[in-house]
């Protein structure tokens, strides 16, 4: 509760600074609209923003789900096999060296202007953090526990299922928290490159028509969505880490 109060306090303080900046500098509203003007734009365009927010939220949700499943399965495979780790890990690091932003036009070319290219962007951007964090957790089970499991005549996959996977859940939670923040970035980049729906598309559209207040309203909606997603993932991570 105190965290929420603190966050609200910071938000209100930020708004005051923003409003003061607008008053003091007298900057035109198409350069920097006041918070009040942005609020008005948000209310006037609430249906438009909501419609596009649903699209972006769907892309982010699907990207998060698919990226998490792929990342977790990859991490388990890497942790289970040293050979797999030696072969795949350098490839994974290499894929991270390629800027995901640069891939967006290619993905749009391959998967079209619809939701698929944005989901793929979100998956690509969260795949490595999820894989890396979960892999670390899977390989950091104390040696004594693994030794004990070995004296209990268990197989590699029984140890994986009963010990390594649950032991690494807090690490997966850390990866998911990063993913919750990164996934919207992937989806919005995809929308910037080529889309007919979504908050990223709406931002570009508003910017092109000098509707800076609408652009800010879309941006703030995206930020609030990301914060809500992060909070939900944090809560879920804590719950299954305690379970």
């Amino acid at each position: 509760m105190s965290t929420l109060r603190y966050a609200l306090g910071v938000g209100v303080f930020g708004l005051l600074i923003w409003q003061a900046l607008v008053w003091i500098t007298g900057v035109p509203h198409f350069i920097l609209p006041s918070p009040w003007r942005v609020t008005q734009a948000a209310w006037d365009n609430r249906m438009l923003i909501a419609e596009n927010a649903v699209v972006t939220a769907t892309e982010v949700g699907l990207g998060l789900l698919i990226g998490t499943i792929l990342g977790a399965v990859t991490a388990i495979q890497l942790a289970a096999s040293q050979r797999m780790h030696r072969l795949v890990m350098p490839l994974l690091v290499f894929t991270q060296a390629v800027p995901v932003f640069a891939l967006a036009p290619i993905l749009t070319l391959w998967f079209g202007y619809g939701i698929a290219s944005k989901v793929t962007m979100a998956v690509l951007i969260i795949y490595f953090p999820v894989t890396s964090a979960y892999y670390d957790g899977l390989t950091q089970v104390p040696r004594d526990i693994l030794d004990m499991a070995r004296t209990m005549d268990s197989t590699k996959w029984q140890v994986m299922r009963r010990i390594r996977i649950p032991h690494a859940l807090p690490s997966l939670g850390t990866g998911l928290k990063l993913a919750a923040v990164y996934a919207p970035i992937g989806a919005v980049i995809g929308e910037w490159v080529g889309a007919s729906k979504g908050l990223g598309y709406l931002m570009l559209l508003a910017n092109g028509r000098a509707k800076t207040d609408l652009m800010f309203a879309s941006l703030i909606t995206l930020a609030l969505m990301t914060i809500a997603l992060y909070a939900a993932v944090s809560k879920a991570s804590s719950a299954f880490s305690r379970a």
Binding site: D144, M152, Q158, A243
Partner: peptide, 24 residues
Amino acid sequence: AQSDLLLPWLSVLDNIVLGARLRD
């Protein structure tokens, strides 16, 4: 071992039957 090696996500009872559970 020196440390108890109890799995923190399992109850006391489930920790005791860990061997059987591991072997399915």
